[in-house]
Design a protein around this nucleic acid. Structure first.
Lengths: 320, 320
DNA sequence: ACCGGTTGCGCAACCGGTTGCGGTGACAGT
DNA sequence: ACTGTCACCGCAACCGGTTGCGCAACCGGT
């Protein structure tokens, strides 16, 4: 592996000039920059990250912390974040950590010595513990908001409320909401939003927290069918799919027996052309969050925290 | 952040002794080791990875390369690998790269300067290109075999063949196989295995490559229904689910109209208690692969490549 | 008391970049 | 010709661990 010294020698300059030519070209004569770049290219020079990290005091690595990989919701976020990170020359390490207890916080503390920033997605832990994690390094929260911390969220709460209003307009009297972990911030937001949207207009049945899986959908379906609800808003795609399937097996047709909202592509595959669809762009969420984190890391002054809310498009069936 | 110097001073020894006490305690008097450890603990010393990497010439980071995050098959592998990596004090970085063309190979080459090893999962590229990637750093292939390279695969081919034989015993005359990318090594293996199992006993209908999604399942279902096959082996869970659903919508019942094999948990949720189920333990696959990679990285001599095959359990319905 | 052999530790030179500071030469102004 | 300015570049000291080498203290054996 060629080192910077080799490049410098080949270009006929000193190591320091070579370093500047490659990383801060404005400080070096254009003609010299060119020579150095060509030597680097020719030798196949790849800067040693460890050396750079040691000298600069930062590693160029950011950690994306997800509570679980089981939920398909997180993978596009990771993909989007990785994409944007690569554009900024940052490396990305994926960590599964729900921040649920103090040992989770400890392991993040350990990790914080080796990364420049955190993307904390949907952390489930208490606000105080989460806040402690946010103060270790520059952090952007994804799908959770805490005062004073930058965050990016997909506004599913508003989308759910819009769907609920749609169902009410369609004459539904009793609407069911099947949510996730009751420690989830998003879950609270959605419940509040849907409660507000239905208040005085329809009954709202809030079901027990369910994992975001197909099996959970089939499990909850009987209770759903017996609840008297005629429309349901499930919080995860696979969960909704399970519900649709199990209701069908019980003779409850969708959407006639039970209206439901689900991801667009799946709705299309199911032939549910008359239902409202919700589409969270996870990749965009990841990209936006990583951009925000990058800003946070490069900005020298600690300005006020940014709070971004990505609208979640709700598409109503034509003529619905 | 306290440094090794601080720890050494606190323990009343030199930096070198402190270093040895923490990383090679056998070289230091037990009593001294204890003193150093206590100082380190008390000060909250966390070794600077960049400095260690620079001095040792290795980074302690391994890259897990996956072709896509879209397929849920890969996430448990990542989870398992991450778990085992953490046990070995290794950090893990997830990279999406299918090794499909030469630019993919270039970016891995770049990356290879910053990691100690690769876990290449299901690379789709040509054998020569993949081999080139394997020679950059210690590498373990997952779900693909190449001569001379260590690999760990889940033996779905054998499992598929067993399922096919089961279907034949049940009297099925025409069996369908819905596979993935025709550039996938596993796909070839499965086709060959199922072809061998059905040869002379049943017809085999091999469908076009499909993405591993629910939508793909609903898309292929009509062709499947019209193919005359009475049993189907889909290569991905979501795909199978789409098939089951879309067949149901066409009035083809599962399993009476069409037998199918699918992941155990999903089969249970679907109430398909009479079908054979297949369970790939992705997490175990990831753990095993990471263990193999760790061995490869620590072993000094380049011994012969290990080829591991994890059996994939097939469970036949009771009395089936 | 003398000697070869351990054992435990410290000195200092690395690893490969980055950067503060000072030096050099070109050029313009008086 | 003399000096001040400025752009460009090199020297050397870092960053924080790791490790080869050598020194000193201690061991038992004669």
């Amino acid at each position: 592996m060629p080192t910077l010294d080799d490049v410098a020698r080949a270009a006929g300059v000193s190591k320091s000039t070579a370093s500047r030519a490659l990383s801060r070209p404005a400080l070096v004569a254009p003609e010299t920059v060119l020579r150095v770049r060509q030597s680097a290219e020719r030798l196949g020079f790849v800067p040693n990250r460890a050396a750079t990290a040691l000298a600069r005091g930062r590693t160029g690595i950011v950690a994306v912390v997800v509570p679980t990989l089981e939920n398909a919701f997180f993978t596009p976020i990771i993909g989007g974040a990785q994409h944007r990170a690569a554009e900024s020359g940052l490396q990305l390490t994926v960590v599964v950590n729900a921040l649920r207890d103090d040992s989770d916080l400890d392991s993040l503390t350990q990790l914080s010595a080796q990364v420049d920033g955190f993307l904390l997605t949907a952390p489930l832990g208490s606000e105080s513990r989460t806040l402690a994690a946010c103060q270790l390094k520059p952090t952007v929260l994804v799908d959770r908001e805490i005062a004073g911390v930058s965050s990016v969220i997909a506004d599913t709460a508003t989308a759910f409320a819009a769907v609920a209003r749609h169902f009410i307009r369609d004459g539904h009297q009793r609407i069911a909401l099947v949510g996730g972990s009751n420690r989830s911030w998003q879950n609270e937001q959605r419940i509040a939003a849907v409660r507000a949207a239905t208040a005085g207009l329809a009954e709202l049945a809030i079901f027990d927290p369910m994992p975001p899986t197909f099996a959970a959908g089939t499990e909850i379906a009987p209770a759903l069918a017996e609840s008297g609800a005629t429309a349901v808003i499930p919080y995860a795609t696979a969960l909704g799919l399970g519900i649709v399937f199990a209701l069908g097996a019980r003779g409850v047709a969708v959407p006639d027996g039970m209206a439901i909202t689900i991801e667009r592509q799946v709705a299309a595959a199911l032939g549910l052309t008359t239902m409202p669809t919700i589409d969270v762009d996870g990749a965009e969420l990841g990209r936006t969050a990583m951009s925000a984190l990058h800003d946070l890391m490069t900005r020298d002054t600690a300005e006020t925290a940014a709070r971004l809310r990505l609208p979640v498009p709700v598409v109503f069936p034509p003529g619905g």
